[in-house]
Design a protein around this nucleic acid. Structure first.
Lengths: 216, 216
DNA sequence: CCGTTAAAATAGACAGTGTCTAGATTATCG
DNA sequence: CGATAATCTAGACACTGTCTATTTTAACGG
C-alpha cells in the first residue's frame, strides 16, 4: 500500500469530478488571464480546479493539449466579438467589414493573453481539427465581407484575395500593436475617447480596401 | 572547503572569460533561434557559452535582463534590414516607405523568435533605456518616411500620425501573420516567387497611405 | 444485484528550470 | 606586493511538466 492516509484531501463530494474537462478549461482561461502567457502553469490550473496536479493529463494529454483546446474555444469568442460589432454597424458591406475589424481589436484588448496564444505562439497544436475549424471559420467570415464588397470570390480571384489579406493585416497589426502598448505613441498627441479611437481605427481599416474596388 | 575537486572543469584558458557578456548574448541569440521562444532556457545559454549556470546572473541579473539586452540589440538588426531594402529602392519617398516595410517583413522572416521577443512578449523590460532607444529610433525612422511623403510633422499633425500608424500596422500585421504561417492561406491560390511576394506586399503597404496625401 | 472492467483522479518520483548563496579564483590598482 | 573588488563556480531551493503505480468510482453484462 502506497497511500496510508485517505486520498480525498479535497473538498469535493465525489472522487470523480463529473465535468472536469470543462472545469479545467475554465480554470485555464482564468490562469491565462491572471498570470499572463509567460507565467501560465499546468499545476496552477489544477490548483484552480481543486484537483491533483496530474489530473489534467488524463483529459488533455499535456500542456500543449490544454492550450490547444483553449485556443480553439477562443475562436468562438473571437467571432462573437466581431458579430457584436457587426450587429451595431450600419448596412453597407464596407461598414460590416470595418465593424468586423473593430471586433477583432476588441477581442485582443479584452483577452490579450488568449489573443497571443491563438495568433502569436507556437504552443497550440496547429494540426488539431477543432482549432483549424475555428481559424477557418474566422477566415471565411472575412472572405465573405470582401466578397460582399467586390462581388468576386477571393478563393478564385487573386485581387480579391489581396483585399482579404490587406484587411486582415491591418486589423491584426492594429490589435497586436495595441496590446503591446505601441499605441501609447499615438495617444500622446491627445488622449482619445472610445468613439474617437473607433473612428481612428475605422479610417485605417478602410484604407486596406480602396473604394475603387466597390461593386454596386 | 566546499569544492574538493578542481573547479576548472571547463576547457578555457583563464578562470575569467574576458568578454562573457558579449559571448552570452551571442549564445542567447543562438539559443533563441534554435529552441524558439518557448524553449529558451538560461541554463542552455550558459551551456552554449561553456560557463556555469549561475554565471549569466552576474552580467544580466536574471533571464529578463538577458532577453532585454537581446531585444535591444535586435533593433539594430531590425533597422539594418530596413536600410538594406531602402538602399535598393527607387527614389521617391513612397518607394522608401514601401522598402522600409519590406525590410520590416524581411526581419521577421529571418528572425521570427527575436521578432516575437521584441514585439509580442512581455518578457523584455520595457523601462530599459537601451531598449526604448532602439524602439524610438525605429519609430522615428517611420515618422521620417511619412514626413517626407506628406510634408507635415506627424508629431504635431494628427492626420500625418494616422498615416504613421496605418503604415506601421500594415507592415506589422503582414510580418506577424507571415511567421504565424497565416499566409499559407494566400499562396494556395498560386505559389509565389520572391519578387511576386514583394509585389504583393508592396501593394498592400501602399494602401496604408493613400496617394491623395502626397505633397509635391 | 453482483462482479468485472474501464475510466477518472491521486500522489510520488524524476529531470529540468530560474534564482539565491557561499565559496573559489583572478584581475586591478594603490 | 597586498588588499579589494570583480568574476565565475557549484550547491541548494522551490517550482515546473511528465511519467508511473495506485486508489476510487462509474458502467455494464450476467
Amino acid at each position: 500500500m502506497k497511500h496510508d492516509f485517505p486520498a480525498r484531501t479535497r473538498n469535493r463530494q465525489s472522487y470523480h469530478h463529473g465535468d472536469l474537462k470543462r472545469a479545467l478549461m475554465d480554470a485555464a482561461e482564468l490562469e491565462l488571464a491572471a498570470k499572463g502567457f509567460e507565467g501560465f502553469s499546468l499545476r496552477g490550473v489544477a490548483k484552480r480546479a481543486d484537483v491533483s496536479h496530474g489530473a489534467p493529463a488524463h483529459h488533455f494529454t499535456d500542456v500543449s493539449g490544454l492550450l490547444t483546446a483553449i485556443a480553439a474555444r477562443g475562436y468562438e469568442r473571437f467571432i462573437a466579438a466581431q458579430n457584436r460589432r457587426e450587429s451595431q454597424a450600419g448596412d453597407g458591406p464596407r461598414a460590416k467589414l470595418v465593424a468586423s475589424g473593430l471586433g477583432y481589436i476588441d477581442f485582443a484588448i479584452e483577452n490579450p493573453s488568449l489573443f497571443r496564444l491563438m495568433f502569436s505562439s507556437g504552443r497550440p497544436d496547429k494540426s488539431n481539427l477543432e482549432l483549424t475549424q475555428g481559424a477557418d471559420a474566422a477566415f471565411e467570415k472575412l472572405v465573405g465581407h470582401i466578397r460582399a464588397i467586390t462581388h468576386s470570390d477571393p478563393h478564385t480571384d487573386a485581387p480579391a484575395m489581396t483585399d482579404v489579406f490587406a484587411a486582415w493585416a491591418v486589423a491584426h497589426g492594429l490589435a497586436d500593436l495595441l496590446i503591446a502598448n505601441g499605441l501609447s505613441r499615438a495617444t500622446f498627441l491627445k488622449p482619445m475617447s472610445a468613439s474617437e479611437r473607433d473612428e481612428f481605427f475605422s479610417e485605417i481599416i478602410l484604407r486596406a480596401v480602396p473604394a475603387i474596388r466597390d461593386e454596386p
